[in-house]
Design a protein around this nucleic acid. Structure first.
Lengths: 110, 110
DNA sequence: CTGATACTTAGCCAATTACGCAAGTTTCAA
DNA sequence: TTGAAACTTGCGTAATTGGCTAAGTATCAG
């Protein structure tokens, strides 16, 4: 259960920035070029590229260049690992509160 | 649709560190004191406290002090927001690949 | 060949983060 | 009241981030 690969670090980190989440959002509507991704984000192009590099390192997106255009798209199954973690821990969350309720119930039989 | 509160930043960031995920994991089994959380993590206490501060700022956990012991516990419903984001975007992920498949099907009628 | 397009690379900077050590502070127990 | 336990605070340092400008490189259109 302690497999927790470093990839998880990268993915959570990648999504901890609003601009990057915005890019992911955009890519959910289909592949896009660097400038298309940059357009809504009042930021210099090199800054956008750094964000894209973070996303790509995390494995959430991938890109390929054709001519002078680099196209980014979502990486299939990339969310799987994060989802696994969240689902596994949601269980823990619930267990914790179940126990709390149990405890309260025991404390105050009224 | 662009509600994306800053809390999401904090939560994703909080979970982007393996030690912090470990603490959350531990708290899934029940509340714990600072030293209990520190014990398995070969780190100085002040370092552990900073990690805990990050988790608490994110809203994922909360703590209260009684006597000289501060007890941490998971914050109910904290994962809800992250889950909402992930679920919403998993849809995007799937949509993207549905379209890709459609495209490939159109391109190569063979 | 020339210029515009679409990225890339190479710095630079301010702010934040991650970590550690050392020295507090507050409780609790004897 | 003395000492240990359990945090807390206060630094200091090194690395990382998120942003920029300026100057490349590589295509593509004419």
């Amino acid at each position: 259960m302690m497999h927790e690969p470093a990839a998880l670090d990268q993915m959570f980190h990648a999504l901890s920035d609003r601009s990057r989440r915005g890019m992911v959002d955009r890519l959910g509507h289909g592949p896009a070029s660097v400038s298309e991704l940059a357009e809504p984000l009042s930021m210099a192009l090199p800054t956008v590229m750094k964000h894209l590099a973070v996303l790509e390192r995390s494995g959430l997106v991938r890109s390929e260049k054709s001519g002078r255009v680099r196209t980014y798209r979502l990486q299939r199954d990339a969310l799987a690992e994060m989802e696994r973690w969240l689902v596994a821990h949601k269980a823990g969350w619930n267990r914790a509160f179940d126990r709390l309720e149990q405890f309260l119930a025991d404390e105050q039989p009224e």
